[in-house]
Computed example of a mutant assay.
Amino acid sequence: MYSLSYESIHNGQLREVEIEKIITKWREYNKANSITGCLMTYKHKCIQILEGPKDAIKALYNTIESDNRHHNTSIFSENPIDERAFPEFTMAYLPITLEGKDKSGFQRLKMNIAILSDFTNPVHTTAVLFWKKIKEYIDSDAASI
């Protein structure tokens, strides 16, 4: 098995309802190809971890990389794995927003992200780096709250 995490910036034209439709389609694809993982969106940024057969992961990443709804797509971690961090999720989806959050709401958000990262039991380097990258994005806005 193999794991890959990437980050990208989406073109900003995708609305939540469109993202949900895309996720439904890719969940079916992932299930058929034994792929699991998690997608996080934050502002116009996407971070995703993919787990499964190496050929299937590489093919899916190539499709994502050529999708014109993304740019600045880059892999920040990939490695062979023995165990999945998201075994039950063909694609967990974590949309993060700071809209309407005050300092207290922001702290709850950070705590929830920490709980989620522990809950999924990051069992390999790519999963650890996936959660670390999400926390970095959230922390980068701490001063503006």
Rank of each mutant, 00 (worst) to 15 (best):
26 W>M: 02
26 W>K: 00
26 W>S: 07
26 W>Q: 03
27 R>F: 02
27 R>K: 15
29 Y>P: 00
29 Y>H: 10
29 Y>N: 07
30 N>H: 08
30 N>R: 03
31 K>F: 07
32 A>C: 01
32 A>M: 05
33 N>W: 00
34 S>I: 03
34 S>L: 04
35 I>R: 02
36 T>N: 08
36 T>H: 05
37 G>Y: 05
37 G>A: 06
39 L>K: 02
40 M>T: 10
41 T>W: 00
41 T>F: 02
42 Y>Q: 05
42 Y>H: 11
43 K>R: 12
43 K>A: 09
43 K>G: 00
43 K>P: 00
44 H>W: 07
45 K>L: 13
45 K>A: 10
45 K>H: 14
45 K>R: 15
46 C>F: 13
46 C>K: 00
46 C>A: 13
46 C>T: 14
46 C>V: 15
47 I>N: 01
48 Q>A: 03
48 Q>R: 04
48 Q>S: 01
49 I>G: 01
49 I>K: 02
51 E>P: 02
51 E>L: 09
51 E>V: 10
52 G>F: 04
53 P>E: 14
53 P>S: 10
53 P>D: 15
54 K>N: 05
55 D>Y: 09
55 D>E: 15
56 A>S: 12
56 A>Q: 12
57 I>L: 06
58 K>E: 14
60 L>E: 09
60 L>S: 06
61 Y>E: 11
63 T>L: 14
63 T>N: 14
65 E>V: 12
65 E>H: 09
65 E>N: 12
65 E>C: 11
66 S>V: 06
67 D>N: 10
69 R>N: 13
69 R>H: 14
70 H>Q: 11
70 H>A: 09
72 N>Q: 15
73 T>S: 14
73 T>H: 01
74 S>F: 08
75 I>G: 07
75 I>C: 11
77 S>Q: 12
77 S>C: 15
77 S>D: 14
77 S>W: 06
77 S>N: 13
78 E>V: 12
78 E>L: 08
79 N>F: 02
80 P>A: 13
81 I>F: 04
82 D>Y: 10
82 D>N: 15
85 A>H: 03
85 A>Y: 00
86 F>P: 00
86 F>V: 05
86 F>H: 01
86 F>S: 01
87 P>F: 02
87 P>H: 04
88 E>D: 14
88 E>C: 00
90 T>D: 13
90 T>E: 12
91 M>V: 05
92 A>N: 09
93 Y>N: 08
93 Y>C: 02
94 L>M: 14
97 T>E: 09
97 T>R: 02
99 E>P: 00
100 G>F: 01
100 G>D: 09
102 D>Q: 05
102 D>G: 11
105 G>V: 09
105 G>H: 04
105 G>E: 08
106 F>R: 03
106 F>A: 03
106 F>N: 01
106 F>C: 01
107 Q>A: 13
